[in-house]
Design a protein around this nucleic acid. Structure first.
Lengths: 246, 246
DNA sequence: AGAATAGTGTCTATCAGACAATATCCA
DNA sequence: TGGATATTGTCTGATAGACACTATTCT
């Protein structure tokens, strides 16, 4: 088969090729006990049976990508509402799944503290894992997860993403806790407070305060809800780490 | 078929579903005559025959995604070297292609001014189009292109992406031209100059200067090459446009 | 009482952007 | 010579981060 003919076939009918499967995989993040957690499922079947993996699965006919991601997430956690979801990236290395050619579109999901997940259909188990103590994952899910964490840390800077990790209303301290947890660095309380309030549309006051002070003392704090801004101007830049070249 | 059974089937064998095709589409950007240009091909066959579209096509067995993107780009332009490429996003709405279910992984490509492209195999024509005067595109390529432009404008701020649009060596003025063209705003020459040189690893001096001054006068300028930085610290922020909520 | 936290005020080094100045080169 | 550009210098308003202070609440 010469070059021209193979090219013709390549474009004429894609069904002439071995089947390609498309999956969605979800990097679901939440904060529990002041630590960033990722939702993982234990695979119940081959390949990689017994290994932890990201929740996900094959897309269904007529189903949109974000829809598939929400469905897979709901199947594992039993919860769908109040979950922000956005696309992360596509992964399609030829040998990433030993069964066949599988291209995966990954999604990032953010949620306030959720109850423990229920092991779903295909999974032997499902649980939240601390993002800093992860087991080795199946397929290339380790890479996907790492990409997702990096993306989340990045987006915290210039979007109101942090508000997706807290409840409907929240205090500035809770918001600061999100940043400190996801970035893994302590932030100056006073400066953070002023900075957040200075960004237009980031948060808006509810006029209410907490019912009582903090568990270790301190006055009641004011409650806020997420504002209308889609981007933070100016951004809350992550403290520099002298890694110019990454 | 009850819920449980359909779910079983959905996970058991993806080949039981109607075929899903995976394509790559490339948003290739360059700067010609002080204007941002996008590479488009005119479709030679149905659907959308005669319409302009992004270069792209079906992935081949054993071929990695970025590899497929480079191949498709090479087939349209006859050029592959010196082209930066990075993934943009995945698109998989059920009806985006009338023939069958097609999921596309899009890539962004950046290149210095390239010669006019050669119409390739499947394309009736191929040409650079000004990014500000685009025809209506086939499929959802208009959306993909818009996403690509936004991504490019964004990445100019905090990555050395601009250096991918100029030659091996370049002047600060040429670099400024890239920012002005992609962002569509004039920048202050003096401040831009000092700012670029103050970002560690953005550019490094070659010790040389241009052979002659600018075409409209002015002294010879020093030549630089891209530095080693992968991220710009501090970033070159785009002038604010009072669109907090975008 | 003692400790911890919320919220605000203040100070300083730094930076972005405006403006200016000078040297160099094309037409 | 006149106009345009490269590069550097200077000034000013704004900001990030360090520190400090007060009021409030828990144990």
């Amino acid at each position: 088969m010469d070059e021209e003919e193979s090219e013709f076939l390549a474009r004429y009918d894609p069904r002439a090729f071995p089947a390609v499967a498309v999956t969605v995989d979800v990097v679901a993040l939440t904060i529990r006990a002041d630590a960033l957690h990722v939702l993982l499922v234990e695979r119940g079947s081959q390949p990689h049976a017994g290994r932890w993996a990201l929740p996900g699965g094959f897309i269904r006919p007529g189903e949109d990508l974000p829809e598939a991601a929400r469905r897979e997430l709901a199947e594992e956690t039993g919860l769908a509402p109040r979950v922000h979801i956005e696309q992360l990236a596509g992964y399609g290395a030829p040998e990433r799944d030993p069964r066949m050619r599988v291209v995966s579109i990954s999604y990032l999901a953010f949620a306030p503290d959720l109850p423990d997940p229920q092991a779903g259909s295909d999974a032997a188990d499902a649980a939240w894992h601390r993002a800093d103590r992860l087991p080795e994952l199946a397929f290339d899910h380790g890479r996907i997860l790492a990409d997702g964490l990096e993306r989340a840390r990045d987006k915290l800077q210039y979007t109101p993403l942090a508000t997706a990790f807290v409840g409907e209303t929240f205090t500035i301290s809770e918001l600061r806790g999100v940043y400190e947890t996801v970035w893994g660095v302590p932030l100056h309380a006073g400066n953070f407070h002023r900075k957040v309030l200075s960004v237009p549309g980031f948060v808006e006051s509810t006029g209410e305060t907490t019912e009582s002070g903090g568990r270790r003392g301190g006055p009641r704090s004011r409650l806020y809800r997420a504002g209308a801004a889609g981007l933070l101007h100016p951004a809350l830049l992550r403290p520099a780490k002298d890694e110019e070249t990454r």
